[in-house]
Amino acid sequence: MEGLIKEAYLIDKLAVCMLGVVMLMSLCSRLVTLVYVYAFQSLLLASIAFFASYTPHAHHLIWMVYLIITVKVVVIPYVFLRIIETLTIKKEVEPYVSQLASPLVASGLVILAYYSQQYVLQLHEGVVFSHCLSISIAVILIGFFLMITRKKAVTQMVGLMTMENGIFLCAMVLTSGMPMIIELGVSFDVLMGILIMGIFVFRIRETFASIDTSKLNSLRG
């Protein structure tokens, strides 16, 4: 039990770090930096999975560590970087919400997540990883916020992946991992999703000579 408390402590700290990194994403103004920050965030997720695998009924999470490192730390950032490189995208992120306001909104979302957990759900009593639910809700919300306030298709994809990381955090830490087959299937879907979106980004670029999604606006009503 002693050991478990130590791991829980570590996991909580790592999750807080992850939240910090996600907050950092709202500050990024260069696309390449954004992708690197995403990769680092996934690495933190992998280390959380590593420590979580020592909790009861969660030994299969060790496979998740390998899975996350291959898919989220290596393959997906590589795909992003390739897209950015081949399309020679202008490097800026181009937000709808200004670079200054974004971190403020993100902080607001974190407070909202903590508030909803402590006062609306009142789950804090007797739950070991009390931070993690709030943090994963906050990560999902910030990812969503990044998605809807950025014009570039690639930035939207990074936002989506951040949301997915939040859910993985919740699934691994709070429920000691979903059944393995589900985790595999979900990772497969995520990977396919990114590849398919990548294909569409190329097609959009060919047809519209830009990947600014605010130009996709002819269908109305």
């Binding site: 999902i140 939207q156 989506l160 859910i167 999703g193 569409f200 999604t213």
Partner: peptide
């Protein structure tokens, strides 16, 4: 293409909430 991109992004985000 516009329709497909919207479909892909909106439904994937939606379904991400369903995963949560």
């Amino acid at each position: 293409l516009e329709a497909a991109w919207k479909y892909l992004i909106i439904c994937t985000v939606g379904i991400t909430f369903a995963l949560f």
